[in-house]
């Protein structure tokens, strides 16, 4: 086991960062110096003490309530919900200019998202504008919630990323429960291992510039380049595999030998329909075509043209 030194490296990094922890903090403005239309977050507690207590226990809550870093964050509740004076003065009867984020909110999705993006439109969210989720009016709060902690990370609305994404992408969730699946349910990876739901310059919101390069992140042995290459493998792993899960071994889309017979048409054995006979055993049983063509993803053997070596 040669992995022992790596956690130590991580601990060293932690210590390094811890030594630099801290940063500027800004106090809550006095009530008489609030901008017009703002009531001050203290007034929110009159009615929303329960919600606030829960929020104050979250990481975001501790930041906004306890250690705001600038004047904007120092507005507390109103830093996200906007000016609440009209709401307060109506005794809660009217929302006034408040921005609300509940699933049935009347605040437009764009207005809601603008609040979040005013701080978070960077790093992974740079390509949010124009992304498929943004143009289909998926709100930040469709997937995230800040007022209480549900997930272990990323303030998701559900406990895990697959559960969150599965609210709309139900078929993907069902696929992950199939017999042939990646270890998503086992918690070893999730949707964001391959996709950036906040937008990406790549197809299917992938985190790398092609399907193959996403797969190579864990399966670098398939990267090559090889002496003998299998063209559909080079172009996309998804020509043969469905990474979300299938009923066939190795996440294959179609069972062998039919998968291979879709393309292989020359004379000899690929074009034989095959049945359950002893002669056909090595073509039909076990790992079928791959019984012999083991290096189907590419071979670096000088004589490996047919991927058997």
């Amino acid at each position: 086991m040669r992995i022992g030194s790596r956690p130590l490296f991580g601990i060293a990094l932690l210590a390094l960062c811890a030594s630099g922890a801290g940063g500027q903090v800004t106090a809550m403005p006095p009530a008489d110096s609030l901008p017009p239309g703002y009531a001050g977050s203290a007034s929110c507690l009159d009615c929303h003490a329960k919600e606030h207590a829960v929020f104050a226990g979250t990481v975001k809550g501790r930041l906004l309530v306890g250690r705001p870093r600038d004047k904007h964050e120092a507005l507390g509740c109103e830093s996200c919900h906007g000016p609440g004076k009209a709401h307060e003065q109506s005794g809660g009867e009217e929302l006034g200019q408040l921005i609300t984020f509940s699933p049935r909110s009347k605040t437009s999705v764009k207005a809601r998202d603008a609040v979040c993006l005013s701080c978070h439109e960077k790093t992974a969210r740079v390509m949010w504008a124009g992304s498929v989720h943004e143009t289909r009016d998926v709100a930040c709060t469709s997937c995230h919630t800040l007022m209480h902690s549900v997930s272990d990370r990323a303030n998701l609305r559900r406990e895990t990323a697959p559960a969150t994404c599965g609210r709309c992408h139900q078929q993907r969730v069902a696929q992950m429960l199939r017999a042939s699946h990646m270890p998503v349910g086992e918690g070893k990876m999730d949707c964001t291992s391959c996709h950036n739901p906040h937008g990406s310059p790549n197809e299917k919101l992938l985190i790398a510039s092609s399907v193959n390069e996403v797969c190579f992140a864990c399966h670098a042995e398939k990267r090559g380049p090889f002496m003998w290459q299998h063209p559909p493998v080079i172009e996309s792993c998804s020509n043969c595999h469905d990474p979300h899960g299938t009923a066939h071994e190795k996440l294959l889309k179609v069972p062998k030998p039919r998968l291979c017979q879709q393309c292989h048409d020359p004379t000899s054995h690929p074009t034989q329909p095959r049945g359950i006979t002893a002669v056909d055993a090595r073509f039909i049983q076990g790992r079928q075509c791959v019984d012999c063509h083991f290096n189907i993803h590419g071979s670096n053997h000088p004589s490996g043209k047919y991927f058997t070596r």
Binding site: P29, Y38, H72, E78, T107, A114
Partner: peptide, 15 residues
């Protein structure tokens, strides 16, 4: 409805 900009601007006026 306020926009994010108005919320931000409001913050800038804070004492």
């Amino acid at each position: 409805k306020p926009t994010a900009d108005t919320v931000k601007k409001a913050a800038d006026t804070t004492a």
